[in-house]
Design a protein around this nucleic acid. Structure first.
Length: 263
DNA sequence: ATGGCCTAGGATCTAGGA
């Protein structure tokens, strides 16, 4: 079974790329982020024509996540509130960044973590607050689902080897200490990095700035991740980054990451 | 040293991304 994650930077702008990729890579579940469209406007038909089912949770202009699966998902939950309750979540579900559902034994959690803008900004505080809520959300889910695959655009490079030039990034958004600490706290609930099970090298990235020919020069960041609960981590047989779509005409600035696990 | 690009919305610019 394969699960892929891809921040597409608008599904309407990237529809042809996503369909072409899915034809060549018929994964069991495809998790999309930054769909940037209300649910009624999501172009479902091309996916359904390929035999896929869709669960979408979007909003106008910003954010938005979707689950695209070969078989319909069970126990689909949108946002933190169904798991944690409104009192704990507050207004954190106003931005649509979380959708989850069960595929066989595996519970897939698709996340678009806030960007955070810059250190000390209001958006930065929001990012840290959101990650603290994510930690509680996952702690509540794990006893229910021992096999969890959380994936998505985390907007955080956890280690220096995940950045093209870490030396000047200590106070950069996506690499700062408090962000890394907040993500480590999330993972401490019981998750491990699927990619690092198979590859310890630096220089492997999932996002490259549109500017300055960053992709051609491989000036990138590894910020899109698959984190697996222990039982699922043991089953993982591969985790790869597909660089191809980032080189296509008018690409997303992110590229897909695929994890595979056996029985 | 700076900004370099892309998207949506509603318009010829702004906000946001990372």
């Amino acid at each position: 079974m394969k699960v892929a994650t891809w921040n597409v930077n608008s599904i309407r702008s990237r529809l042809d790329h996503v369909i072409e990729w899915l034809r060549a890579n018929p994964v069991e579940v495809l998790c999309l982020q930054e769909t940037k469209v209300v649910d009624d406007g999501f172009p479902k038909q091309p996916f359904e024509a390929l035999g896929y089912s869709l669960q979408v949770y979007g909003q106008k202009t910003y954010n938005g996540v979707a689950l695209i699966s070969r078989t319909p998902l069970e126990a689909v939950q949108c946002g933190f509130t169904p798991v944690l309750g409104a009192a704990r979540v507050g207004d954190l579900d106003a931005q649509r960044r979380v959708i989850a559902g069960r595929c066989g034994e595996v519970y897939v959690v698709n996340l678009y973590v806030p960007n955070g803008n810059s250190l000390g900004s209001e958006k930065y505080d929001y990012k840290l607050t959101w990650l603290d809520c994510l930690k509680d959300y996952l702690a509540a889910l794990l006893p229910q689902y021992p096999l969890i695959n959380i994936c998505g655009d985390f907007n955080i490079a956890l280690e220096d080897r995940d950045i093209y030039n870490a030396a000047d990034k200590a106070t950069h958004i996506m690499a700062s200490g408090p962000e890394r600490q907040a993500l480590k706290a999330v993972l401490s609930v019981g998750f491990r990095d699927g990619f690092r099970k198979f590859n310890q090298a630096g220089g492997h990235f999932t996002w490259w700035d549109y500017r300055a020919a960053s992709f051609r020069r491989n000036l990138g960041w590894r910020i899109d991740h698959h984190y697996l609960s222990p039982q699922l981590y043991d089953r993982a047989t591969a985790c790869t980054i597909d660089l191809d779509p980032r080189g296509w005409d008018k690409p997303s600035d992110h590229t897909p990451v695929i994890v595979e696990y056996g029985e």
